[in-house]
Amino acid sequence: MSTPAIVGTLDDETTTTPRSRRRRRDDAHGAEAGTHHRGPVWTVLGYAGMVLVVLLVAVPLFWILITSFKERGDIYVRPAQWWPEPATGENYHELTTRIPFFDYVRNSVIITSATSVAKIVLGVLSAYALSLLRFPGRGVVFLVVIAALMVPNQITVISNYALVAQLGWRNTFQGIIIPLAGVAFGTFLMRNQFLNLPGEIIEAARLDGAGPMKLLWRVVLPMSWPTLVAFALITVVNEWNEYLWPFLMSDDETTAPLPVGLTFLQNNDGVTNWGPVMAGTVLAMLPILVLFLFLQRQMIKGLTAGAVKS
């Protein structure tokens, strides 16, 4: 765990003793020496590989970005234009005027935050009950949850649709959010995390008089922070991109989220003007990107918090 990369993020933790710092630096030297031993050919190949991967990921993103600033006629030209010339904000203007873009953003934020919060809270609570609390039928409940995880969501869609439609919840936020709040994945993930926590710490907290909520909040969750953040991130990204169910449930921009809304920029029987589509993609990506950068820091912090020596 004492990799040099992580030391760099620890600037606020001043209590690390100088001795352990020095040792970490020594480790780093050792690691560098190790790579030198492998010879320049491997090093070059390694960097080439990394550059290749970066290009694979970055080039399409870059292309989306520059296309969003191109004029319509410049999108399909040969040779390809690698810089918008002239640059234009027209696509963004068209994006926000041709479809009710901000309505879709609002809906996405509402649906994503509500569903994510519900999923995370329910996932954590159910996983906690299924891993650390003893009650009769616990195994059966867990089996049922796992079984729910195994049923592909395409199969449940129709019966869910029937249920929600009968409740008269079509084209409403609760109709979209509540069926999405099922948590089998979170339950499964967090349960495994909780079961992997050192049992003695849980017992220590019980002996220290911590009730179930306090045990969860003060002891179990802080130790599970990295997993929880990863789970939250996966959940938010999934909800943000969720397409099938919101598409079935929503009728118009009063409830439809961004992924559904952006499709109306595409011409489904003819030529699509890709400029606004790319602009919409850029704007839809931004919040998730920011969230990811922010939470990633949290995840690494969580990892360095220092567990108990086993």
Partner: peptide, 20 residues
């Protein structure tokens, strides 16, 4: 607390419930 867990379970099941 079990009540809460139960509620979570029910919500989980809602993902595959419903008959038309």
């Amino acid at each position: 607390f079990l009540g809460l867990a139960g509620a979570a379970g029910v919500a989980g099941l809602s993902a595959c419930a419903g008959t038309g």
